[in-house]
């Protein structure tokens, strides 16, 4: 398997939160069912989708939906600061993985992450998006990419991703062309 990179396109995202539930289903994250509904259940979310308040100019509305999860940085600062070497790169795919046994929950990764992406489970241990590495190995798409109705998530090689981003930027600047 080649190196993998992820691009979550803010221009395509529709804020439907399918990716969040697909991710929860894949990993069976809490909150779990309880008898008698809990008013404010708290669980683990690897993906957060944020809405940027619309900017209206003329006929155009600009309101990207930004989904933040581990970006799998090539030169990941979290790996460098982790005191217990619990974060590592998969040698084959360069996906950032977490060794939960080693994680001590010091949150150094959170304090160094440029995106504030790290999330922690109920034991205080780091949980990161692993790009569904097991599914990728089986030749499937990641859970979120497969489910996304707006095709806003792309998992591919870094070269393909940068090409895609460049193409989208050109289209945007050229204007008029629908994405």
């Amino acid at each position: 398997m080649t190196r993998k990179s992820v691009f979550r396109d803010p221009a395509q995202c529709m804020n439907c939160k399918t990716c969040i539930i697909a991710c929860k289903l894949k990993h069976m994250f809490p909150p779990h069912n309880t008898t008698g509904a809990a008013a404010d259940p708290k669980g683990v979310n690897l993906i957060q989708v944020y809405h940027v308040d619309p900017e209206i100019s003329g006929d155009n509305v600009h309101q990207p939906f930004v989904s933040i999860a581990c970006m799998h940085c090539e030169d990941a600062p979290c790996i460098k600061v982790c005191p217990s070497s619990a974060i590592l790169k998969d040698s084959e795919t360069h996906i950032t993985l977490v060794d939960q046994e080693r994680c001590i929950g010091c949150k150094a990764c959170l304090w160094v992450c440029p995106y504030g992406a790290p999330s922690f489970n109920e034991d205080g241990k780091l949980v990161l998006c692993d790009l569904c590495i097991d599914r990728l190995r089986e030749g499937k798409k990641t859970a979120c990419e497969a489910a996304c109705p707006a095709s806003a998530i792309y998992v591919a090689s870094p070269e393909e991703i940068s090409e895609l981003r460049a193409r989208k930027a050109v289209e945007r600047i050229a204007g008029g062309k629908m994405e």
Partner: peptide, 12 residues
């Protein structure tokens, strides 16, 4: 192959 949050949460 696309779905939505409602359908995927059916497991709960």
């Amino acid at each position: 192959g696309t779905m939505c949050a409602k359908g995927l949460a059916s497991i709960q």
